[in-house]
Amino acid sequence: MLVTEVNEALPGGSSLLRNEPVQARSSARLTGLLDAAASIIDEIGFERLTTAMVAERAGASIGTVYRYFPDRIAVVEALAVRGAQRFVDRVSVDVSERDITRWADSIDIVIDALVEMYRTEPGFRAIRFGDSETADKALTADTRRPLAEQLTTCLVDRFGIERTADVEFAIEVATETGSALVARAFFSDPAGDARFIDQSRALVSGYLDTALNHAR
């Protein structure tokens, strides 16, 4: 992964990293550290993650880890942000490639992308289910916001829905509730319980249908 790709994976990356990578080799090293951390988290959860484990799994020195991250919480935070950005990128590509004729189609795209992240993005599921000080620090508003932002942008840009405070609030309510149901779908089923996923689609579509019609 090159420098530009690392910057995309960690938006505002320099604020999360002790040292921002300036060469392709440094970027690849950073990516290797995050990939190693993600694989460990998938195996044992992030509460048992240590910087020493990350270094060993990545085949790097502990000094290399500390060059970029002050502690393990910073590693988890970086993974959360990288996952959020990859989710945004996935939705953006899907929206641009698909012929959307109804605003409800955009909801399916967002939920499909979120479901796919749970199924395929290393570390994503474990971090999302965290209930601890580490998770609280890692899952800040900046890492939770992309779901609502992507749906809002899609509805405004593609369907001419006026972006008002009421509309933004309605979309935030819908996405917070819908994403919670998607998270529940993966709580005990790595493939995702289709019942919760289906209800997430129905709930978000029904709520927004009422809220957006009321806002017009």
Rank of each mutant, 00 (worst) to 15 (best):
L2V: 07
V3I: 12
V3S: 05
T4L: 06
A9I: 07
A9N: 11
P11K: 03
S15V: 12
S15Y: 10
L16T: 02
R25P: 02
A28F: 08
L30A: 12
S39Y: 04
S39R: 15
G45T: 06
G45C: 11
E47K: 06
T50M: 08
T51M: 08
A52G: 10
V54R: 02
V54A: 05
E56C: 01
G59R: 06
G59N: 07
G59P: 01
T64C: 07
V65C: 06
Y66A: 04
F69L: 03
P70L: 04
P70E: 13
R72G: 05
V76T: 14
L79W: 04
L79P: 02
A80V: 05
V81Q: 09
V81A: 14
R82T: 06
F87S: 10
D89E: 08
V91M: 02
S92H: 09
S96P: 00
R98S: 14
R98M: 11
I100L: 15
I100V: 15
T101D: 09
T101H: 11
R102H: 13
A104D: 12
D105G: 08
D108P: 05
D108E: 15
D112K: 01
A113Y: 05
E116Y: 05
M117L: 11
M117E: 15
R119W: 12
R119I: 04
R119D: 11
T120H: 14
G123Y: 09
G123T: 10
S132V: 02
T134S: 08
A135W: 01
A135I: 03
K137R: 14
A141M: 10
A141V: 11
D142Q: 12
D142P: 00
R144W: 11
R144F: 13
R144G: 01
R145P: 00
R145D: 13
L147W: 13
L151R: 05
T152F: 10
C154V: 12
V156W: 08
V156E: 12
R158A: 13
E162T: 15
R163W: 01
R163C: 12
D166Q: 15
E168A: 14
E172A: 11
E176T: 08
G178C: 05
G178A: 09
A180N: 06
F186K: 01
F187P: 00
G192F: 13
R195L: 09
R195K: 03
F196Q: 00
I197M: 03
D198C: 01
D198G: 14
D198P: 00
R201Q: 06
A202D: 07
L203Q: 00
S205K: 09
Y207G: 03
Y207E: 00
L208N: 10
T210P: 00
T210S: 04
T210Y: 10
A211M: 08
H214I: 14
H214C: 02
R216D: 13
